[in-house]
């Protein structure tokens, strides 16, 4: 199986606070990898290192290596902007820009310099279809994205990141504010999307991780406690902490 992202002994400090304490993990291509763990476990920080959003924080120090397709994105000669044009990110709170549905999705492609009308139309349609949103949105493309429901907004954000034609999609607790039906729609979309993309799903919801991820990683206090195929992690956890977490004893 192909390794898409390879993390080697990654340490991240905020000021003097060590938030990630030497994490090594391989993320596989065309799989959904679930990152779970209680708040403060470092899972979101790891994600923000993948797309280098972490650069916007103050007083951050990063040690170790992250390879994406073999390219070191921490020490290598690559800048955050071009990296983020190849990695889609969906946040916990859906954050559509205060523009129309169409403009929200066309925002990224336009930044890349795509101005051709038919090309943009096609991109928007494809992206919306892949995010399972096309049927609801096809007649409302010019509506303000702020008027959509929470679940629609989140799928819009997913569509928006797909329009960048990324290879990796990072989802940082994308369903934390959504009802079960909206959550199910996102999960359906992800199951389709993994055929094309490498997906990392950060979630507090262990049931969601168990439901849709192929591989599961459990983080605790900045360390990777356990990592393996989801079935194995959830049925025969090798660590006591993992067992306690997935059985709901803490979290």
């Amino acid at each position: 199986m192909d390794i898409k992202i390879q993390v080697e002994n990654l340490k991240i400090f905020f000021d003097k606070n060590e938030v990630l304490k030497g994490v090594s993990i391989d993320v596989y291509r065309n799989r959904i990898t679930g990152f779970m763990g209680p708040a403060g476990s470092g899972k979101s920080t790891l994600i923000s290192a993948f797309n280098r959003m972490i650069d916007f924080e103050e007083d951050v120090k990063i040690e170790g290596k992250i390879y994406i397709d073999g390219v070191d994105i921490i020490n290598g000669d690559i800048d955050g902007v071009s990296l983020r044009r190849q990695i889609g990110t969906v946040f916990a709170v859906p954050i559509p820009l205060p523009r129309s549905v169409f403009d929200n999705i066309a925002y990224g492609p336009r930044l890349k310099g795509i101005t051709d009308k038919t090309e943009l139309n096609e991109l928007v349609r494809d992206s919306l279809k892949k995010a399972f949103l096309w049927d609801e949105m096809k007649d409302r493309l010019s509506m303000s994205a702020l008027k959509l429901s929470g679940g629609q907004q989140q799928r819009l954000c997913l569509a928006r990141s797909l329009a960048l034609k990324p290879e990796i999609i990072l989802l940082d607790e994308p369903c934390s504010g959504l009802d079960p039906i909206s959550t199910a729609k996102i999960e359906d979309a992800l199951n389709e999307l993994k055929k094309e993309f490498t997906i990392i799903l950060v979630s507090n919801n262990t049931k969601q991780i168990a439901r849709i991820s192929d591989y599961s990683a459990f983080f605790y206090m900045g360390e990777l406690i356990e990592y393996g195929p989801t079935e194995r992690v959830f049925t025969f956890p090798s660590q006591k902490q993992t067992e306690d977490y997935i059985s709901g004893k803490f979290g």
Binding site: N51, M53, F56, V81, S82, R84, R85, G88, T89, F91, V93, I95, P96, L97, P98, Y107, G108, L111, K112, C157, R160, S161, L164
Partner: peptide, 25 residues
Amino acid sequence: PKTYREGSFAMGATKWQTIYKVVVP
């Protein structure tokens, strides 16, 4: 909101693109 900026950055906008396309409008 800070989230507008993050959303824009996450889609590969540079700082300046984010400022004149999202923040100032």
